[in-house]
Simulated assay, not measured.
Amino acid sequence: MEIIEGAGVWTPLAAGAANDWVEHLRVPDLSVGTYCIPAGGRDDQSPHTEDEIYVVTAGRAKIVTLDGAAEVGPGSVIFVPAGEEHRFDEVTEDLALLVVFGPAYGSRAPLATGK
């Protein structure tokens, strides 16, 4: 067992940073981290090669995919399959996300699109 301190907690960003990703745990089959985007910030992530789950722990935004968009806030749980384009938009309150990747983030070969 391991208690993961600070996972999903909003952390002020370093000066000049657009957003922040911190990995808290990594084992071969999954990784857990926190992704923070400040209010008014821009999410410029590319599709990932792993499935992921986001749990919104603080803030409000809209998640946008090619299939549509949805408002999210504290308690929202979002599943994004590997390879699906997605981003958080219209971040109206500092957004903190607990992120779980399966398998561990970056452990699969790059997508055919090069992203």
Rank of each mutant, 00 (worst) to 15 (best):
D67E: 13
T34G: 01
K115I: 10
T113R: 10
E52Y: 02
A7G: 04
V99A: 03
G6L: 00
S76R: 03
L97N: 04
A15V: 05
T34F: 00
M1S: 10
D44R: 13
A96P: 06
E23S: 07
T92R: 14
G59W: 02
D20R: 14
L25S: 11
V56S: 05
E85C: 03
P38L: 07
A69P: 05
L30N: 05
I37T: 01
L98C: 10
V72Q: 10
G75D: 12
A109P: 10
T49H: 08
F79L: 14
L97G: 02
S46A: 15
L111F: 09
W21V: 00
S76F: 01
P12S: 04
V80M: 12
S31D: 03
A69V: 06
G41M: 01
C36E: 01
T113S: 15
N19H: 11
E2L: 04
A58D: 14
I63H: 01
E5D: 12
R87L: 11
P12M: 04
D20T: 08
R87Y: 03
F88R: 11
T49S: 15
Y35D: 08
W21P: 00
Y35I: 01
A70Y: 11
A39R: 05
A109T: 15
A104N: 12
P38D: 11
G106H: 05
G59C: 08
A14Q: 07
K115N: 11
A104I: 05
P110F: 15
D67W: 05
H48W: 12
A109H: 10
L13W: 02
K62Q: 14
P47D: 07
A109L: 11
E71R: 13
C36H: 04
D67V: 04
V99W: 00
E23R: 11
T11M: 10
D43Q: 04
D20A: 11
V72K: 09
A69H: 09
E90K: 09
A112V: 13
D94K: 12
I4D: 12
D94A: 11
E52C: 03
V55L: 14
P74D: 08
E2N: 08
G114F: 14
D29R: 11
D67N: 11
